[in-house]
Design a protein around this nucleic acid. Structure first.
Lengths: 191, 191
DNA sequence: GTCTATAGCGCGATAGAC
DNA sequence: GTCTATCGCGCTATAGAC
């Protein structure tokens, strides 16, 4: 069915972009993994820009839903942060091979992307930083966390840290090193 | 002179890679900025891999020297950290256009690079994390800084944070937002 | 050292049969 | 929806004149 093929293409494209980057993959790479010919991909996604936008939209939507699940739960702030960190760690641990956040990868490639994609990436960054800030602020109010400064700054800090730590840990140390850095962050904000 | 041409090529290539990424640039892009024909570039750097390795080697060497200058100075730890942060901020502030750390960009593109480059990037990460850890440990001993956990973990944390914050801030907020995140980090480790 | 010219390839995208 | 075939382009790299 069309819908399955479309989803399969998105799956493979997303995986390849998270691993190698949008500028390092081609319709041929995708067609070799989805059982379909290169030209047929254009039926589902006329141009590479269309495909990229679809991958981005799906990823951002799914990811933000997972984050909102965490926000809506009744858990201590430290537990929420660990679950949030786990969302990123999952990509590093992927059995298919270490990946980084889709929007981290595309953030690096930002200057070679078209503006709708750039706007989506900016929105992803803002939404994440803002949600992390909410967890932090709530944790500070309950006394579950302690830190100086504004929750908004610290939210952006943690989000930036996770994006950077994925990048660095993928090159050296993997998920284990990533989790070590994340735990070190938690040490800094525990009372 | 040959040496000037070579250096000019390296300058332009480095700038383009920090802005757009190694996978998004070509010999043509470089030749348009250096006053030389596309084919002539191959005289200085036979292949793209050679060029990339030369850019990397020069960047890592220069950057580590600047870091070691900071380490060797007689300043309080917080001041050393601010100077270290300034090394990254300089790329974001570049008048030619916002850039990220060369090794941050290449870390994203890691899966599409050849192994000598990968090894150089890993080394850059380790050397930076280790030097930051030394600043942090010394600062803790003098009472200039206060933090829980191991200096080694926190060194990797700060380095990862700066790489991630460059990426995120380039997309949204620029140098100003980057410095805000860096100052928030300092708040967390001040006594 | 730098040039012009070009080989050879992979790419994104389209046309048209089925 | 998927196929085969192909166009036209930009790329890395090389050959050979100057």
């Amino acid at each position: 069915m069309a819908r399955d093929t479309k989803a399969a293409i998105l799956d493979v494209a997303q995986d390849l972009i998270q691993t190698r980057g949008a500028n390092a993959i081609s319709y041929r790479h995708i067609s070799e993994r989805v059982q379909i010919r290169k030209a047929s991909l254009h039926y589902h996604f006329p141009t590479k820009a269309h495909l990229l936008e679809a991958v981005l939209a799906r990823y951002c939507g799914t990811f933000l839903c997972l984050v909102d699940d965490i926000l809506g739960s009744n858990e201590p702030a430290a537990r929420k942060l660990r679950r949030y960190i786990g969302l990123f760690d999952a990509a590093l641990r992927a059995e298919a091979g270490a990946k980084i956040c889709l929007c981290g990868m595309l953030g690096a490639e930002l200057a070679s992307l078209e503006s709708p994609a750039v706007a989506q990436i900016q929105r992803f960054y803002r939404q994440n930083a803002e949600r992390v800030a909410r967890i932090l602020e709530a944790g500070r109010e309950t006394g579950d966390l302690r830190f100086a400064g504004e929750a908004k700054s610290l939210g952006l800090l943690l989000f930036s840290l996770l994006e950077g730590a994925m990048l660095v840990a993928r090159a050296d140390g993997g998920s284990k090193r990533f989790r070590r850095v994340a735990e070190q962050f938690l040490l800094l904000v525990r009372p």
